[in-house]
Design a protein around this nucleic acid. Structure first.
Lengths: 145, 145
DNA sequence: ATGACTGCAAACGTTTTGCAGTACA
DNA sequence: TGTACTGCAAAACGTTTGCAGTCAT
């Protein structure tokens, strides 16, 4: 993920100061590691990487920070059915949905304005106002077939 | 859920005997309670109801039975983001997706052959073979707006 | 008879929390 | 300076497992 990390930090600092929260060294370390990691990662996986940069960062802080960044929409939280939550850096990314390979666990992305339009109509049909949605396709990817 | 319980039992017995498994009194109690409960329920919630019929049924058996029935496609397992799995009786029901009200937690259903067709095309585009999918819309329902 | 099934209690893996001390704005 | 933040350890949560005994076929 080669994205302008300066911009990522700026976005994060903006959110924090707007909410009277602090940009601590732990939050910075976690933020940078998250945006340099692979696209999707779990908490323990990220913790291991973060600890290489700063071995004093605790599990508690990591989990608290993931929750905070999710609320800030810096990260997005997913459940790919692995028994733990997955996170995805979202700054500079558009909304998309996922294909999950049940064999190799690889995550692919797809995006369909057409589907979004239909699901919006389905919701409206029932007087339902969509806030978010989650659309996942589980199956076998190209490389595993 | 007023469905022919005799038919439900028959389906279940068929699956069990086809796999050399046994139709125990515990499995029967759980099956019947599942199909008489509300459409979507969690394990602990079902356990409480099941215990009213047979107080000796254990948590372990309940969880093992839910897993078994899910494999048999008697039940379907969902994650509505409540921190626990939800189950839905599927005998005599067609596939459908869900709308979840984030306020009152009510579950509504929708179904769109059109969406299924597009998602199939999106998957094919990436050489991906879909096995199952999960499509959930989170928002505010008619009654909560 | 025999293998599947059960209840019990303990273990599990992930995530959350209370607390006393630390550090950012 | 003061409140947000931290690490630690313990707890919490839903779920799973090992085991010794029981039951359906």
């Amino acid at each position: 993920m080669s994205l302008n990390l300066a911009e990522v930090e700026k976005k994060c600092e903006e959110f924090l100061s707007a909410h009277d929260l602090k940009y601590t060294s732990q939050r910075r370390t976690i933020l940078l590691q998250a945006f340099e990691s692979k696209r999707h990662f779990g908490a323990e996986e990220l913790l291991a990487l973060v600890k290489k940069r700063d071995r004093t960062i605790s599990k508690a802080t990591l989990y608290r920070t993931l929750a905070l960044f999710t609320e800030a929409k810096i990260l997005e939280e997913h459940d790919f059915g692995d028994g733990h939550k997955s996170y995805e850096p979202m700054i500079g990314k558009e909304h998309h949905d996922h294909l999950i390979c049940v064999k190799c666990k690889a995550i692919y992305e797809f995006e369909s304005p057409q589907i979004e339009k239909i699901q919006e109509a389905e919701a409206r049909k029932q007087g339902f106002q969509i806030i978010t949605h989650s659309h996942k396709l589980f199956g076998i990817c190209k490389r595993c077939r």
